[in-house]
Design a protein around this nucleic acid. Structure first.
Length: 464
RNA sequence: GCCGGGGUGCCCGAGCGGUCUAAGGGGCCGGCCUUGAGAGCCGGUGGGGAUUACCCCGCGCGGGUUCAAAUCCCGCCCCCGGCGCCA
């Protein structure tokens, strides 16, 4: 019987120094490890003390049942006295236990050896490029800074005209979005989208679903709200504050991604190893406060409070999770190659990983109007960080060992972001937008949807 | 939302204040037996702590009453049935 099967707790007890190193790699104060270690030791000591007292009390209680008369009265007194002491020690234990729990839950995942070390996203390392980016003549230098600087020779197409940024293009040229009105009625980072853009949104989602279902991923429409207990299991405290909306007066939180609901799908379950891996593709709206974003990307629909996303989520055996991570990112890559959007894959630096992830890849698409690669997809192996919190265990066929499964998540397509990428990459000098060919079959189901181009606004074409 | 019934271990299912620490069955794992399989027999099959042949906790969740709670009381969650409401 394995005593401790959560990798973090095992590490904390067996080699706290090593765990400290992992935390340091994230540029987080490693004293949280010391604190967790001390509280764990303290807790175990206090627990032993309580258990010994409980044992004594149980023995006396059992004796009481067999006795009568004076003997019984004497034993009763003894039991009551012991209870007083027990209550006191139990209270101490309860306090320590809560502190220990908090300390354990504050620990981030370990950092995989292949993760680049650095405090922030400037240490992220591009590992491969795909496609032929359209680079406006004025952005050539900064393009090279994002490619050649890392030793990659990326073929690109120089364009003389500067594409219009997705936000202005959407609202002024196409006139298919209205963030001002949305701002008035709901607040900034909300939007109204119209007509062709709505069809595009739906086509993108169908495209991603279709692709992944064909690969054997099970299609899921999950809950859009979850209880505190579940949210606590899938995100860390920082994400709770910056990303999550709460429903007033109820124990419910709006999901920030289907990842949350999909992780919860097997919460508190034991999964036999022969059932793994379990691969899911979820589709849902995502609600995010974007509290930490400041005034970043305030215009347009790049960074918003709600959007649609198709998400990949896998429950896996520990020995196969790293291979599956490669599968998930390559699925996302195939989707973006289908869309003909030039991208790079970035290995996220240790300081930029979220607490749940041991390793993370982002897929960043080249945005011709910004001259930047921007994040479209995020793919993480969270190993047993989420499964420990949600108590999702693995049952091996041989032997009685209990372990926690590994969980992984990756974007397939996030609708609004992908739309911004399409608007910038397929924008033509005449103001039309070429629609990626791969979406055509999903647009054909709507008679009124555009098939090849989205056209700019013309006064005369608008009917009441 | 209201009224009624119910939630017991991997599954079925008894127990409804104390004959110790959930009976009995099924499944699964390990062992014995066997040429092999089956049957049969034995042991194991929730979480945790430790001075590692010991102990604590666990009967939907959280409190309470009691020396003692699966069992009694209160709150919450979920499931089934009925009524109401509703896209």
């Amino acid at each position: 019987m394995v005593k401790v099967s959560w990798s973090i707790l095992k590490l904390l007890r067996e080699s706290p120094e090593l765990l400290r190193e992992h935390v340091k790699k994230r540029f987080i104060d490693p004293s949280i490890v010391d604190r967790a270690y001390e509280l764990d030791v303290k807790w175990r000591r206090k627990l032993t003390e309580v258990q010994e007292l409980r044992h004594k009390h149980n023995v006396i209680s059992r004796e009481v049942a067999k006795l009568t008369g004076v003997e019984r009265e004497v034993k009763l007194e003894e039991a009551k006295k012991l209870l007083e002491e027990l209550n006191k020690v139990e209270e101490e234990l309860k306090f320590i236990e809560e502190e220990r729990e908090k300390a354990l839950l504050s620990l981030p995942n370990i950092v995989h050896e292949s993760v680049p070390i650095g405090p922030d996203d400037s240490y992220n390392v591009p590992i491969r490029f795909w496609g032929k980016p359209k680079v406006w003549i004025g952005f050539i230098e900064q393009f090279k800074n994002q490619t050649e600087k890392y030793g990659f020779k990326v073929d690109y197409e120089v364009i003389e005209w500067k594409p219009i940024g997705h936000a202005d293009f959407l609202e002024s040229v196409l006139r298919l979005g209205n963030t001002l009105k949305a701002g008035e009625v709901a607040g900034s980072r909300f939007y109204y989208l119209f007509d062709d853009i709505v069809f595009l949104d739906m086509a993108l989602l169908m495209y991603a679903i279709d692709y992944l279902v064909k690969k054997g991923y099970r299609l899921v429409l999950p809950p859009y709200m979850l209880r505190y207990k579940i949210m606590m299991g899938v995100i860390d405290f920082a994400a709770f504050q910056d990303a999550i909306y709460k429903i007033e007066g109820e124990d419910l939180y709006l999901i920030a991604t289907a990842e949350h609901s999909l992780a919860a799908l097997h919460a508190f379950e034991d999964i036999p190893e022969e059932d793994l891996p379990l691969k899911y593709v979820g589709i849902s709206p995502c609600f995010r406060k974007e509290a930490g974003a400041g005034s970043k990307d305030l215009k347009g629909i790049f960074r918003v409070h709600q959007f649609h996303k198709v998400e990949q989520y896998v429950f896996a055996k520990p020995e196969e999770s790293w291979d599956i991570m490669e599968e998930l990112i390559s699925n996302a890559e195939e989707l973006f190659r289908g869309l003909e959007l030039p991208y790079r894959i970035v290995n996220i630096a240790s300081g930029d990983l979220g607490a749940p992830a041991a390793k993370k890849y982002d897929l960043e698409v080249w945005m011709p109007a910004q001259g930047l690669f921007r994040e479209m997809v995020s793919c993480s192996n969270t190993t047993d960080w989420q499964s420990y919190r949600l108590k999702i265990r693995l049952i091996r066929k041989r032997g009685m060992v209990r372990e926690y499964v590994h969980t992984l998540n990756s974007t397939a397509i996030a609708s609004t972001r992908t739309i911004t990428a399409i608007l910038e990459n397929f924008q033509n000098p005449d103001g039309t937008v070429t629609i990626p060919r791969v979406l055509r079959k999903y647009l054909e189901v709507f008679d009124k949807a555009p098939k090849d181009f989205i056209h700019p606004y013309k006064k005369e074409t608008i009917k009441s």
